[in-house]
Design a protein around this nucleic acid. Sequence first.
DNA 1: CCGCCGTGTCGAACACGTTCAACTTCCCGT
DNA 2: ACGGGAAGTTGAACGTGTTCGACACGGCGG
Lengths: 259, 259
Amino acid sequence: MTDRSVPPPADAGGAAEQTGVGGAAGAEPATARGEAAGAEPATARGEQTRKLILDTAMRLFRERGYAQTTMRAVAKEAGVAVGNAYYYFGSKEHLIQEFYAETLVEHRTRAARVLATETGFAERLRGVLHAGVDTMTPSHEFAASFFKTAAEPTSPLSPFSTESSPTRDASIALFREALTGSTAKVDPELRDELPELLWLAYMGVILYWVYDRSPDQTKTRALINGAVPLIDRLVGLSRLRVLRPVTRDVLGLIRTLRQ
Amino acid sequence: MTDRSVPPPADAGGAAEQTGVGGAAGAEPATARGEAAGAEPATARGEQTRKLILDTAMRLFRERGYAQTTMRAVAKEAGVAVGNAYYYFGSKEHLIQEFYAETLVEHRTRAARVLATETGFAERLRGVLHAGVDTMTPSHEFAASFFKTAAEPTSPLSPFSTESSPTRDASIALFREALTGSTAKVDPELRDELPELLWLAYMGVILYWVYDRSPDQTKTRALINGAVPLIDRLVGLSRLRVLRPVTRDVLGLIRTLRQ
DNA sequence: CCGCCGTGTCGAACACGTTCAACTTCCCGT
DNA sequence: ACGGGAAGTTGAACGTGTTCGACACGGCGG
């Protein structure tokens, strides 16, 4: 079920400016950055309560949408007090982090089916991209409603945030596999950077998908089907003499902009 | 790297506030879609109150940031009741629409200075892009804080929304002028669509800019300075025999995806 | 002069996300 | 066996954006 969404380019980072409420729930507790995080359950009962709250929240999010689901409703439905939810999750947004993980797992599973059989780069890339959209499709409405939250630069839910980096790296690995497992011949200099660029393109697809109002998001499918051959051709052409300097410049720029 | 093409201040003398939107007033409210908009003032007193609220809000937004500025603070500072603000503006977000208009006006002014002198496509494009960033720079923090609300697909603040289309079209026109006023030779088929693509690239630059945490957003400047020559070269190469089919495919895809 | 009604104005009230001090539960060392 | 304290839990309370019924203003027809 579910998804991941997010936008653009940039560097992660993170001085929290706002109310300073952020929070890191899932990952390591207490790094140097004074994040306000949810607690990591230490007992079996705690684990159970945490899961109960999370499952209830996810169910309500999908049933009613993100904005329409109140924390009070989640607590009531789960049979706990509101404050209890905040004991485990730093904020309503943090309840969504789980969403990323779930989505990644399913994306990986779906993608594996294609990667096991196809050998052409274009077909493998196409498969991974469609697998991602397939995974997110049931949550399209939900994703759109909380997309704004993920879009905020300071949000821990931003795909570029350090908090999302495990998920992000795993996602990039998926595109790396699509490339290395293929028979495509690629400029060796480009080969190292390409997976990240493909992931960036994937973010673009997701961005389009979130805004896509066409029935069943058929336009997003068209975007994938149209863009993949172009990318494939460009990658192939990158070894061409005329385009070599362009390739080189692109790579140089990417390296400069990434931090 | 770091040359900001366009000099900053334009007019001295009185605060050139100008309603900015004024011209677009012709656009009737009330389309079929029942939008929850603010009221259009019908009396002189109403106009005055509306302006008072708007100016106060913009000032506080810039002083304290978007999230830190409460509607109660705006009302109090303006000497009116909270409900009065909601009489003219449908929501807190709607107060930001003006920001777009103001930004566009200044962008246009700054860009004009470059477009009046330069003739090369690359230099003109570079000028327009830097002019845009120049315009927004004072509001970087503010922009980041409300960016999320603009990112939401259903938000009237989305750059892709129908409510933003006047501003968007005017912005695209800026890029069209950068192209048509130049000496660049472009595939005629591409010439019509290119301005919109350049605007899209501009949205990408803004996206990067919002996330840019480097001091004075120097990385965004580097992005512009690096991307412009690439775009210039690609546009030039688009007439090449090998790339003709690619160009054609790109255009076909764009046309399909645009609604 | 009166009454009317559309425009403008008010501020209490609502629902929300979030916080916090107080309470309960229950494991562990003694 | 027991008591101390960490883990877990509670719900009232705070500040927010937004809504809503009531009221004030002012010009115009009678």
